[in-house]
């Protein structure tokens, strides 16, 4: 009988924890910047979904590629059609762990996030340095990092090679609120 109680207790705890301690945003911002001698290209997506599990320090991000807005419509079309192939790979995702999540306080705390980022169907391990702030009602995370286009099999033809940087700077800002 004792075992049944123990099991129920754990299940209850697990369930309770799942339901209560998550923080989510649907309006996270990710922008990227490509700097090259010929042309600077910038795009922003402010409909990024991000979730943090405050129990385990796990984090997941889902990005709809078609929601990136560019200065020029033609750039946006080329981005979706030729580079990230949004029709085939509509989403980019990240799943990982925030290291030392418990140490994040109500003031800005530098943290490392370790995980796997998937863009254009290609997955890469990545460590991201971020600034985090945690209160009872919000978890704010901001930061930037660089990705290498070649790591994600994004092919840049020679004719535009001096217009598009190989290393792209990605900036993010997620203000998570309690989920449910």
């Amino acid at each position: 009988m004792k075992i049944i109680y123990t099991l129920f207790l754990f299940l209850f705890v697990a369930f309770f924890a799942n339901g209560q301690e998550r923080f989510l945003t649907k309006t996270g911002t990710i922008s990227f910047f490509s700097k090259s001698p010929m042309e600077n290209i910038e795009a922003e997506n402010s409909q990024v979904l991000s979730i943090v599990d405050a129990d385990s320090g796990q984090m997941a991000i889902a990005i709809l590629m078609q929601s990136f807005l560019f200065e020029k419509a033609l750039m946006q079309e080329h981005f979706n059609e030729n580079y990230v192939e949004s029709e085939i790979y509509p989403k980019a995702t990240f799943k990982g762990n925030i290291i030392d999540f418990d140490k994040i306080s109500a003031t800005e705390t530098p943290v490392k996030i370790f995980g796997v980022i998937t863009i254009h169907g290609e997955s890469q391990k990545i460590t991201i340095e971020a600034i985090a702030k945690k209160t009872q009602v919000a978890i704010l995370m901001t930061g930037d990092f660089y990705i290498n286009l070649a790591d994600f099999a994004v092919d840049i033809p020679s004719i535009v090679r001096n217009k598009i940087a190989q290393k792209i700077k990605v900036s993010f800002r997620f203000n998570h609120k309690p989920y449910k």
Binding site: L7, F10, A14, N18, A62
Partner: peptide, 25 residues
């Protein structure tokens, strides 16, 4: 048995985050 359940519930958490995002999209 306890170990299994514990592991199972942790596994649930690990798998769930992206699934939740899918649902919330």
């Amino acid at each position: 048995l306890t170990g299994c359940v514990l592991l199972g519930s942790f596994q649930m958490t690990a798998q769930d985050l992206l699934t939740i995002l899918d649902k919330e999209t």
